[in-house]
Simulated assay, not measured.
Amino acid sequence: MLSGVLGKGGFDQLRIVTLLFLAIFILYSVVLPGFFSVGNLLTLMRTVSVLGILGLGMAIVVIGRGIDLSMIATLAVPSALVLTLAAKGFGVVPAVGIGLMLAISIGVLNGILVAYAEIPSLFTTLAVGIGVAGIGQIGLFDYEIVSWPPALDGIAWIGRGSFYGVPYSVLAFGVAAIVIGIFLRRTRYGMFVYASGDNPGATRLTGIPLRPVLVMQYVISSCVAFFAGMVLAASSASMDTRIFNLTWIYDVILVVVLGGIGLSGGRGGVANVIIGTLLIGTIMNGLTIMNVSFEMQNLVRGLVLLVAVLADSIINPRNEETAQQGDI
C-alpha cells in the first residue's frame, strides 16, 4: 500500500532524494564555514565526477536486473595498462586501444558467465573483479602505483584543467551522462535493457535477444569504468591499482540505489545517478570539513546504504518472479 502511494502520488524516491539533497546542501551552506565557497564547490564537483561516471555504468546493469562488482578493477587495471604501455613507447592510440580491448574483454566475460552460464551476477562479477585485480597487481605492473607518462599528455585534459571554471572531469561526467541518457531513452537497445530488467520472461517471449542484451550491459559497464579510470588517472597523474581494496564499489552502489534505481530492475535513469552522486558527495564533503574520521564516514555510508535499500524495497517491491530470479 505504501509503495502504491509513493509511486502513484508522484512522491517517488527521486523527488525525495532531490529534496533531501537540497535540504542538506542549504544546511551545510549555513552551518559549515567555507562549504559554500567557490573553491570547495569546485573540489566537491571534481571529487564526485569519477564516482558519477561509475554510477552511470552501474545503472545500466542494475536497470537490467544485475550488478557489476568488477567495476573498480576495470577502472584500475586497463587504465594502468594504458599508462604502462605509453611509458614503454607505445603510441597514444595503440595504448588506449589495448586498454579498451581489455575492458571490453572483462565485460564480455562477465556477460557470458551471467547470460549463458547463468551464474548470478553478484558472484560472477565479484570473482572476475578479484581475478582482474590480482592479475594486474602480480603480472602486468612493476609497481602498484603507475605514474602518468609524458607520452599521454596530449589527452591529459580529460581530467585536468577547466573550461570557463568548470573542471574537465565534471564535463566528462556530463558528457557521459548525455551519452548514457540517449542510449537508455532514445535507442532500441536501451529499451531492451529496461524490458529485460522489468520482465525477463516476457522479454524473451517477444523475441528480444535477452542473452546478447545482458552481455551488452556488462560490456558498456566495463567501457564506462575504463573511461572513468582514464579520467581519474589524468586528474591524479597516476593510477593506484590498490584502489580495488577500497570501498569505492560500495559508494557506486550507494549512488545508484540511493538515487532511486530499483534493484528489482526496469526502473530509473541518468537523473537518478546525478542526484544520488550529488547527495553522497555533499554528505561526504561536509563530513570532511567537520574533520569526521574516515572510519566514521564509512559508518555513515553503511547506514545510508541500508536506508536506501530499505526504501527501495518499499518503493519498488519485488514480485514472486523477481524473488526467484536469483539475479543479484
Rank of each mutant, 00 (worst) to 15 (best):
T203E: 01
T203D: 02
T203Q: 02
T203Y: 01
R204I: 00
T206N: 08
L210F: 09
L210I: 09
R211M: 08
R211E: 12
R211A: 14
R211Q: 13
P212V: 04
V213H: 04
V213R: 02
L214W: 02
V215Y: 00
V215H: 00
M216G: 12
M216Q: 09
M216W: 09
Q217E: 15
Q217M: 15
I220E: 13
S221P: 09
C223Y: 03
C223M: 15
A225V: 12
F226L: 10
G229M: 01
M230S: 02
M230Q: 01
M230N: 03
V231K: 02
V231C: 02
V231E: 00
L232E: 14
A233L: 08
S235F: 11
S235G: 12
S236H: 10
S236R: 11
S238I: 11
S238P: 07
M239P: 14
M239S: 12
M239K: 10
T241V: 13
T241G: 11
T241R: 08
F244G: 06
N245H: 10
N245S: 14
W248A: 13
W248K: 13
I249E: 13
I249T: 07
I249H: 06
Y250K: 07
Y250C: 03
D251T: 09
D251Y: 08
D251C: 12
D251K: 04
D251L: 05
V252L: 08
V252S: 11
I253T: 09
V255I: 15
V255C: 07
V256Y: 04
V257S: 13
L258V: 12
L258P: 06
G260Q: 02
I261D: 00
L263Q: 02
G265D: 14
G266N: 06
R267E: 14
V270R: 01
N272G: 15
I274S: 04
I274P: 08
L278W: 04
